Deep mutational scan, measured.
Amino acid sequence: MEQGTVKWFNAEKGFGFIERENGDDVFVHFSAIQGDGFKSLDEGQAVTFDVEEGQRGPQAANVQKA
């Protein structure tokens, strides 16, 4: 798993971006967030995640709040 920081996340649209430790950004969809209840992330929040190849390039999977 990688570690990163939430760059931004739009809860209304259900997606955002995580900044990886290497400085690259990776797309995150709310469906990739682990846990119960409303799935959202806060700007600046530390997270761990896997990276999978999506239809439009790399995207975060198995996102967990650190």
Rank of each mutant, 00 (worst) to 15 (best):
F38S: 07
G57C: 04
V28F: 11
Q3V: 13
V47M: 02
P58V: 09
N22D: 11
G44T: 04
A61R: 11
Q34G: 09
E52W: 11
N10K: 09
G44L: 05
R20P: 04
F9I: 04
D36G: 10
L41C: 03
A61K: 14
V28W: 02
W8V: 03
F17A: 04
R20N: 06
N10W: 12
G44I: 03
E19T: 15
D25Q: 13
G35C: 06
G23Q: 10
D36W: 10
A46M: 14
E53R: 10
F15C: 05
E12M: 14
A61D: 04
F27I: 03
N10Y: 07
S31W: 06
S31L: 07
D36S: 13
G54F: 05
D25P: 10
G23N: 11
E21Y: 12
V63C: 04
Q59F: 13
F9W: 14
F17Q: 04
A11F: 11
T5F: 12
T48E: 07
Q45H: 06
A61H: 12
V51A: 04
N10R: 09
V28A: 03
D25I: 11
V51G: 02
V47L: 04
I33A: 02
F9G: 01
T5I: 11
I18G: 00
S31D: 04
G23S: 08
K7I: 06
E52D: 08
K39E: 05
M1G: 11
G37T: 07
L41N: 02
G4D: 01
Q55M: 14
L41A: 03
D36I: 09
K39N: 06
I33S: 02
Q34W: 11
D25N: 11
E19H: 15
D42Y: 15
G4R: 00
F15E: 03
F17D: 01
F9L: 03
L41Y: 03
K65T: 14
Q59P: 01
K13Q: 09
D25S: 11
V63I: 05
G57A: 05
Q3R: 15
Q34R: 13
E19I: 14
Q3G: 08
E21D: 11
E21Q: 10
V51W: 06
D24Q: 14
A11P: 12
D50V: 14
G14F: 02
Q55D: 13
V6R: 00
T5L: 09
G14A: 03
A66G: 14
A60L: 01
A60D: 01
V26H: 01
R20W: 10
Q45C: 07
K7C: 04
F17T: 03
L41T: 03
N10Q: 06
D24G: 12
N22A: 10
F15N: 02
A60E: 00
F15M: 06
W8N: 03
A60R: 00
Q3S: 13
G44E: 04
G23H: 09
M1P: 10
V51Y: 06
R20M: 08
D36E: 13
Q59D: 02
P58I: 11
T5N: 10
V6S: 02
F27P: 03
E53Y: 13
N22E: 09
E52G: 08
T48S: 12
G54W: 05
Q59L: 06
T5D: 04
F17W: 09
Q64R: 14
G54A: 08
V63N: 00
V28E: 00
G57L: 04
S40H: 10
E52A: 09
A61G: 08
F15P: 01
V6L: 05
A66F: 11
F38Q: 08
F27L: 04
H29L: 06
F27G: 01
F9Q: 01
G16T: 01
A66S: 12
H29R: 04
Q55L: 14
I18E: 00
A61C: 08
G4E: 01
F17E: 03
V47T: 02
A46W: 11
S40K: 12
T48Y: 11
A66T: 12
M1F: 11
G57E: 03
F38P: 08
V6K: 01
D36H: 13
A61M: 12
D24I: 12
V47F: 01
V47N: 01
G23K: 14
N62I: 04
D24M: 09
E12R: 14
N22K: 11
Q45S: 09
F15H: 07
K39P: 07
P58T: 11
S40M: 10
D24P: 15
D25R: 10
V26Q: 02
E43T: 15
G54I: 04
F27E: 02
G44S: 06
K7H: 05
G57D: 03
E21W: 09
P58G: 05
Q34N: 11
L41I: 05
N10G: 04
G57M: 04
F27C: 03
E21V: 14
